[in-house]
Design a protein around this nucleic acid. Sequence first.
DNA 1: CCAAAAGTGTTCACGGTACACCCATGC
DNA 2: GCATGGGTGTACCGTGAACACTTTTGG
Lengths: 229, 229
Amino acid sequence: MSYTYEYPRPALTVDCAVFGIADSSLELLLIERAEPPFAGHWALPGGFVNIDEEIEDAARRELEEETGMRNVFLEQLFTFGGVGRDPRGRVVSVAYYALAKPSDHQLAAATDAARAAWFPLDDLPPLAFDHDSIIDTAVTRLRGKVRYAPIGFELLPRKFTLTQLQGLYETILGTELDKRNFRKKIRSMELLVDTGEIEKDVPRRPARLYRFDRTRYRKLARQGFAFEL
Amino acid sequence: MSYTYEYPRPALTVDCAVFGIADSSLELLLIERAEPPFAGHWALPGGFVNIDEEIEDAARRELEEETGMRNVFLEQLFTFGGVGRDPRGRVVSVAYYALAKPSDHQLAAATDAARAAWFPLDDLPPLAFDHDSIIDTAVTRLRGKVRYAPIGFELLPRKFTLTQLQGLYETILGTELDKRNFRKKIRSMELLVDTGEIEKDVPRRPARLYRFDRTRYRKLARQGFAFEL
DNA sequence: CCAAAAGTGTTCACGGTACACCCATGC
DNA sequence: GCATGGGTGTACCGTGAACACTTTTGG
């Protein structure tokens, strides 16, 4: 290597804000830290980026190591680098947000995490580092993006009812939506496929199950179609 | 400091994609690198983050050092960390995008930059590192954000005509807009103040000069008002 | 037959879009 | 008086919002 610069370098970490929906409550996945600093505190899953590892790979690796989750929707959120944010010294963290279906994943804490658990977003425990402000940023991003990108589906099972989908938007956006208008709007986008199946074992009239047609969305998006609410 | 981790660390840099409007062309500010790697190539202004320096401060410092620009609108864009993106080894860069009025700033290259100059976005020279992909990301962000946040004003003089404003949107979005509809829309937002002044020294009927009312915007925004194109 | 949620259409108001001409100024 | 851009209003259409009852199923 012919060029080298030798200044002190910040350490580089990743942190993941993983959202899930359970019983029409928006939840966040946290781990209990097993090691200092902040041992015993709850925190976002995350950790150090290896020197030859892509940043997003590090985020996925840490998430799997500390919680057992894999194959989730994951996007870069923001990079937090406040000089005082970590008592170990200068640590810059590239934060990601992720969307997952809690029921699809068996939580399994390991490495630096003593436990992993879901918490309702409106009832979080005290958090390590500046993780509360990472979460604020993530929630804002989620609420904004869910309205103009079809990412809500990442939080539902592959087959879902229109009522589930509407409930999801109501939960995330914190508003109530009109049932008929919601269905009209969603159906007019022609992004859902009626699977022909219906709910089973419900003590009421079973609803039709739909799935999101990703292929069709990509095709439409290329033609300038814009998903909206 | 009681906790220390000693793994090899990536180096941390910042890069700035600075946009400006000149003669209804969207331009980007580049510097010619004076030092290897990529000496003699054009690149985004940027450089290493000091160990006790906020990341955004580093971006502003590097921008001023290399181009002489200061006091610009600056926002974090994305963090680029591809393993092979820098021949010196692992270098992670927090990219920012900035908006400026070229006429307000006297360019003054220094430190690592041999020259600084504006280039039309559709005619950029070959660039160092992965700066072309940083620019792609920045342009996409600019085109998206300009429609739902009042950031376009950062590219205009404090007092401007409605035609200038319309031209700015046309330049950024790459579309033509209808003059009457544009004026109706903008006026209905009540975010512009008629300064009572008019253009001077133009060989035609002089236009009224307006300015953007930032205070009013913030007040409206707090009440749930959403700026939109 | 009762409870619970599924499913379905119409009306109205507003905002987006399309569109063409006269006006003020400098040269 | 001519060239240049400044400035203005109306009609139509499509989309978002409000709103209530019948149907299907399980218990």
